[in-house]
């Protein structure tokens, strides 16, 4: 039995169990369904709002953008939240105390977050096709684009979550990431086309993966004539894949070092100290 391979396989089993647990734990499911559900309801009201020159309503245009945002959200906060919580409750330390445990732990969580996010995206896609006019998803090239953006979007954002999770060691500091994330949503063309926003907003938005994941999903799901609303009147397919790939490579290069530094520092007394601090802060 090859021990390394065995650790990966055990991790994959962990991924399946974690996914099953997440899907059957009401609080986990609600944590995702509630914000996304609210967003979908808002978009339903935007079905009557037209955008100048575009063939679809603002609601229909934002539906694919929402899918893109969900991938980024799930990737970043899925990994970040788990890493931060698991250092407080000792799950990470437990993994460290077993042979191959850290490998199994990481594979397990990466796998389960990917599965959980994919499941969410499929549900969103179905809801979009059912409730919104003007979405097109009937040809293999659209399926391929959709799958490619999904895969690359997760590959870009999960390591970002890992980097942030390795740096933040107090659940309270999650807000430090949450607030900029909200601000970024506003300048990423998720709820209004970025082309209609001021130049500085366009510049900021185009640095981060959220805009590009949304653009990719619009490309996959909207009629080609909707491209007139986009910056430069183009889907910029190559640039989109290139930016997502660049984020993925950068974050993947940084993540392993930071994760192993985080794991190395983990011990019973550091965990106890962290919990003590958390209790004091939260009264």
């Amino acid at each position: 039995m090859n021990p390394t391979l065995h650790a990966y396989r055990t991790g994959w089993r962990r991924a399946l169990i974690e996914t099953r647990i997440s899907l059957t734990t009401p609080s986990d499911v609600l944590g995702y369904v509630l914000p996304v559900g609210i967003a979908v309801v808002v978009l339903l009201f935007l079905r009557g709002v037209d955008i100048e020159g575009a063939p679809v309503s603002l609601g229909s245009m934002n539906m694919p953008s929402l899918v893109g945002m969900f991938i980024v959200w799930g990737g970043v906060f899925g990994v970040l939240g788990i890493l931060v919580m698991d250092r407080t409750n000792g799950t990470l330390l437990r993994a460290k105390s077993m042979p191959g445990g850290m490998t199994g732990y990481l594979i397990g969580h990466i796998g389960s977050i990917a599965l959980f996010t994919a499941a969410g995206v499929v549900v969103l896609l179905a809801v979009g096709l059912l409730l919104f006019d003007g979405l097109e998803f009937g040809s293999p090239d659209r399926w391929l684009t959709f799958l490619a953006v999904l895969a690359l979007g997760m590959a870009a954002t999960m390591p970002i979550g890992a980097v942030l999770g390795a740096l933040i060691d107090n659940p309270r500091n999650m807000g430090v990431v949450m607030l900029p994330f909200m601000a970024l949503m506003a300048v990423s063309g998720i709820f209004y086309p970025l082309g209609g926003m001021p130049g500085w907003a366009q510049a900021v938005g185009q640095v981060f993966p959220m805009y590009w994941a949304g653009l990719g999903m619009r490309h996959a799901m909207l009629a080609d004539s909707a491209v007139v609303v986009e910056i430069g009147g183009s889907w910029r397919t190559l640039t989109m894949f290139a930016v997502l790939a660049a984020w993925s490579i950068t974050a993947l290069a940084a993540a392993p070092k930071l994760l192993s530094r985080m794991a190395r520092r983990e011990s019973g007394s550091t965990m106890a100290a962290r919990r003590q601090k958390m209790y004091q802060e939260w009264g």
């Binding site: 647990i21 734990t25 986990d28 698991d86 409750n89 000792g90 799950t91 330390l93 437990r94 019973g268 965990m271 106890a272 919990r275």
Partner: peptide, 9 residues
């Protein structure tokens, strides 16, 4: 350890 509270679900 004293304070393990892991994998609660």
């Amino acid at each position: 350890l004293q304070e393990w509270n892991d994998n609660g679900k």
